[in-house]
């Protein structure tokens, strides 16, 4: 049984119909890539899972339990971590405070501090600096690191490689690969090369609908589908 499954999910933001029937399944231990063009509804899908933009209809199940009509903080507390796009850290807090605030249970941070800092060694020497003093790449690492503090069964990661220098993309990919060894990941990624190297399965979203899904290994050779839905090869 899938860890997370969405079926016929529709979401409105104000009067706009953003998701018009999204189906997807994320199996335990997998990295699933959510692909699609700009504005297709990838970020909204993640936000809908978290309840930040609640679904108007359809079902969302996590570990067999429905998430619809649950408040975002309840969903998060149920074991879903979120790394929003655009380096979403708290700029007024220090690096350490940013990590500590993600504690769900006392001692989470102490328990995982070493693991996070070994994944992102840069953060160790910046630990007392406020978020404003971090470079874009460092902020992105902090945003991912923060999601690793509590005990999460599923991580929703939105555009981790966006705006990063190639060498940092490499580092970020290694980090995601490593953290996926004990966490399931649903990944939104514009960079197809990054997505194809990380994920084992994919779902393509086009104009708010999930239109294609399968094994990443098949998609890599399917130039036609890549061209049609992602506009790149």
């Amino acid at each position: 049984m899938a860890l997370l499954s969405l079926s016929e999910v529709n979401t409105f933001i104000d009067q706009y119909h953003i998701l018009e029937g999204v189906d997807l399944a994320v199996g335990e231990g997998e990295i699933v890539a959510l692909l699609g063009r700009n504005g297709a509804g990838k970020t909204t899908t993640l936000k809908t899972i978290l309840g930040l933009t609640p679904a108007a209809s359809g079902t969302i199940e996590f570990r067999g339990q429905s998430l619809t009509n649950r408040r975002p903080y309840e969903i998060a507390a149920g074991g879903i971590g979120y790394v929003p796009e655009h380096r979403a850290i708290f700029r007024d807090l220090t690096v350490e405070e940013n990590l500590r605030i993600a504690e769900r249970e006392k001692g989470d941070y102490a328990k995982r501090k070493d693991m996070i800092l070994s994944l992102f060694p840069d953060l160790a020497r910046l630990i007392e600096l406020p978020g404003t003093k971090l470079s874009g790449g460092q902020q992105q690492m902090l945003a991912v690191g923060r999601a690793l503090v509590p005990d999460n069964d599923l991580l929703l990661i939105d555009e981790p490689s966006e705006g990063l220098a190639p060498i940092l993309i490499q580092q970020m990919m290694e980090a995601i690969k490593e953290l996926s060894s004990d966490t399931t990941v649903l990944l939104v990624e514009q960079n197809f090369i990054v997505a194809s190297r990380l994920a084992s399965t994919y779902v393509i979203i086009e104009e708010g609908k999930s239109v294609h899904a399968g094994a990443m290994a098949d998609l890599v050779d399917d130039d036609e589908t890549i061209m049609r839905f992602l506009g790149a090869a």
Partner: peptide
């Protein structure tokens, strides 16, 4: 955190 971005605070639980 709430002042800066309430959504992020919510999504941390």
């Amino acid at each position: 955190a709430n002042r800066e971005n309430e959504e992020r605070a919510l999504s941390l639980g």
